[in-house]
């Protein structure tokens, strides 16, 4: 392939990726409910989102679960990565394999397995079941992100810290976390987006009292295309864009 064909090929695929999303964003500013024609610029649909109190509580649910789940998942995932790197223990290979399997396993399999677990334990579906599930599916992603960075660290640093009398806990707090914070932060951000976007697992493990944004969008979208949904989806897209941008910048900085 020559240079021109290559560029054309890339352009077509990028157009496929971004055209539908672009149209969605443009029409979220269109001053008409159902028309395809451009009726002038408006922020009405965004104002409507802001005044929707029901939506506000749902957004709050999503944010609180996202922040908590990302935080717990980041702690667990970082500990997993550090243990895999530093310690020898029984079942280490198994742990490696399990993290990998959890990443590739289809969401629906994890979703119904957690549903059956919660139903066996007679746990009422809602905030707690949702939080525990989100931590579980985010954790392997953090572990992988942090592990990919930790493998590049100089092992002598740990030996030096040990010789100077630092305990493993001190090494984690004063050496590993300061050195790995970009990867840890990136893991947190990615967990947060995963939690904010998840449809399949949340669909099964939350109850009617605790609605979250993706499920709300799902039920709205089933009823058809509306400018309010365009606006809501545009906001979510912008948020994801921002998070991924920060994560990429943070990760690149220390490369």
């Amino acid at each position: 392939m020559n240079r021109l064909t290559r560029i054309a090929y890339l352009a077509v695929v990028y157009l496929f990726f971004y055209f539908p999303i672009g149209v969605l964003i443009v029409y979220s500013f269109n001053n008409a409910s159902y028309s395809l024609l451009w009726h002038g610029f408006t922020l009405n649909w965004y104002k409507e989102l802001l005044s929707d109190t029901d939506l506000q509580s749902v957004a709050w649910h999503s944010l609180s679960v996202g922040i908590l789940a990302a935080t717990i998942a980041t702690m667990l995932g970082t500990l997993t990565a550090v243990s895999l790197y530093r310690y020898r223990f029984k079942g280490k290979k198994l742990l490696h394999g399990m993290i990998f399997v959890m990443i590739v396993s289809p969401d629906i399999v994890m979703a119904i397995s957690l549903l059956i677990l919660f139903s066996t334990l007679k746990a009422p579906l809602g905030f707690w079941t949702l939080l525990l599930s989100h931590v579980t599916f985010c954790m392997p992603f953090v572990a992988v992100t942090v592990y990919s960075r930790i493998a590049g660290l100089d092992k002598n640093i740990f030996e030096a810290a040990k010789d100077l009398g630092a305990s493993d806990f001190t090494i984690l707090l004063r050496v590993i976390i300061p050195l790995l914070w970009p990867a840890i932060l990136a893991g947190w951000l990615l967990s947060f987006t995963l939690s904010l976007d998840d449809v399949i697992i949340s669909f099964f493990v939350t109850g009617p009292d605790f609605d979250i944004l993706p499920l709300k969008i799902f039920s709205m979208v089933k009823l058809g295309v509306k400018p309010e949904i365009n606006a809501l989806c545009s906001v979510m897209f912008a948020l994801t864009l921002l998070i991924v941008l920060i994560a990429q910048l943070v990760l690149r900085k220390k490369q």
């Binding site: 539908p20 969605l24 976007d197 449809v199 969008i217 989806c233 979510m236 994801t240 864009l241 998070i243």
Partner: peptide, 12 residues
Amino acid sequence: WTSSLIRSYAIV
């Protein structure tokens, strides 16, 4: 990383 629900909606 973008929600595939939102992207499916864009396709709709």
